[in-house]
Each structure stands twice: as structure tokens, then as C-alpha cells.
Amino acid sequence: MIPRSNGSLYTHTENNIATIEFGHDASNSFPSILLTRLAKAFDELSENPSVYVIILKSEGDRAFCAGASFDELTVISNIEEGKHFFSGFANVINAMRTCKKPILGRIQGKTVGGGVGLASACDYCLATETASIKLSELSIGIGPFVIEPVVSRKIGRAAFETLTWDASQWKNAYWAKEKGLYARVFETLSELDKEIQLFAEKIASYNPKATQQMKKVSWQGTEHWQELLIERAIISGELALSEFTKNGLEKFKK
């Protein structure tokens, strides 16, 4: 049995629709082992001929994702550990962009840092009014370097820079919709669940060869991300070792 401290991840497939649901007690944040499992799940579903579309969701009705594990971040002690830690989201983003199946994001609540990267790596996101977003990395001494390419691709560089420099400010779901992160925003969770199921069924009814080709066309020009995102992980890993960041993390913990 996988310890609950490592989070949970379940995959279910019905009527050509696969659902990946992840969870963690700390606001659905991601320890490294859970990120590894998520990347593997996308790789496996990509090659599964019975899957036509994927829904990505998290547990509960509050936070969608609080980003990477804060507990793991605070104990990074060398460059190799830093690179490994920040490569977690890099590997998931690369698995999502190379996945042959369209990915629908169900964003039911607040999302921070790497969680914004996950939403941006989805091909189409539906959200609730409570699905505010924030990139808080600069406020603790690092930066959203790994997720920058995928967030900038989705919402544009100007909007990315607004999120990055306003590291302590939440942007609401309608701001995220205006910038292109969310396609639609709903007042209630029940509305979101109804609509994302209907939309997934619609996508699943399309020619799977056509949707796979559409996915490939949509992500053209990102082939170099396999190397780029790891390079960005090294930058973040080095910053995590700085005294400034360590002091910032201690203040944040207190």
C-alpha cells in the first residue's frame, strides 16, 4: 500500500473516457513520487487504444492543486536533489504535451504554482468561480521557471508576467478565462461536473485519429521542451539552496 503522505492517484476508464484523479491532504499538493505516478499515467493512457479523451481532476471541492510539496522543498540540500525535485513538474508537463489524447482539466478550486502549470498543460479547461490562480514562487525566493513555457503558451507572456510579479495576489477565475486559461467558468461544482462529462462524451464521439492529429498540431514547436524544462529545473534547484530562499521558507513556515 502507498502511504497517504505520498498522496493518491486513481485512473478509471469508461466509454472511452479516462479520468485521472489525484489527491493529497496538503491542498492536493504534489510530492515527487506522486508527480512520477501522474507522468506515468499520462504515458500509459496515451498508448491505450480504448481511451479517446482524458479528464484530469483532483479530490475534494476546495483547492485544485497547491503545487509542489512544500515539505520536500524545505529539505533540498544539494544541486542534484534540487534538479530532481523541480524536474517532477517538468516531466508531467512533457508527458501531457506528448500525450496523444486530448486532456480536459476540471479546475474546481484555487490553484497555485505548479498547479497553474498543470491547468495550462491541459488542452481545454473548465472551472468554477472559486478557481482563482496565483504564482507565488518569487515571494519565497525561487521563480516559476519550469512552468513558464506552458503558462506563457496558454495565456501569453504579458499575463504570465502579471502573475509572476504579483506573486502575492490571487487572480480570479474570470481573469483566468479572459486570458485563455479556462474555456468556461461555472457558478457551482455540480454544473462543472455535468458540463465536463457532456464535453468529454462529445470529444470521445469524434474520430480519434482526427483528435490525435489535432493534439499534435496544437503542440507543434514545443519539441525542445524535453531539454528546456530540465534546464529550468536546474535554475530552480540552485535557487532553492540560496540563503535568501532558505530564510524565506522559514518565514513562510512560521
Rank of each mutant, 00 (worst) to 15 (best):
T11Y: 06
H12D: 15
N16D: 12
N16P: 00
E21R: 12
H24D: 10
S27D: 13
S29Q: 11
S29N: 09
P31N: 10
L38G: 04
A39L: 00
K40N: 15
E44W: 04
E44R: 08
S46P: 07
E47R: 12
N48K: 09
I54K: 05
L56H: 04
K57H: 05
E59P: 00
G60R: 02
R62N: 15
R62V: 03
A63R: 06
F64T: 00
G67V: 01
F70W: 08
L73V: 01
I79V: 04
E81N: 02
E81V: 03
G82P: 03
H84E: 15
G88C: 03
F89S: 08
N94P: 00
N94G: 02
N94T: 01
T98M: 02
T98V: 03
P102E: 07
L104Q: 02
R106K: 13
R106F: 06
R106N: 12
K110A: 10
K110T: 08
T111E: 03
V112D: 04
G114T: 04
V116A: 04
L118W: 11
L118D: 11
S120W: 10
A127M: 06
A127G: 08
I133P: 02
L135R: 07
E137T: 09
E137F: 08
L138A: 11
P144R: 11
F145W: 13
V150F: 13
V151A: 10
V151M: 10
S152R: 14
S152C: 06
S152M: 07
R153Q: 09
R153M: 09
A158E: 15
A158V: 11
A159P: 09
A159D: 14
A167D: 15
S168D: 15
Q169T: 14
W170C: 02
K171M: 10
K177C: 05
K177A: 11
K177G: 04
E178F: 08
K179H: 11
G180I: 12
Y182S: 00
R184T: 13
F186W: 04
E187Q: 10
T188A: 01
L189E: 05
L189W: 01
K194H: 14
E195D: 05
I196F: 01
A200I: 03
K209C: 06
Q213N: 13
V217N: 13
W219P: 00
Q220E: 13
Q220A: 10
T222P: 00
L228Y: 07
I230N: 07
R232S: 11
S236P: 00
G237L: 08
S242C: 05
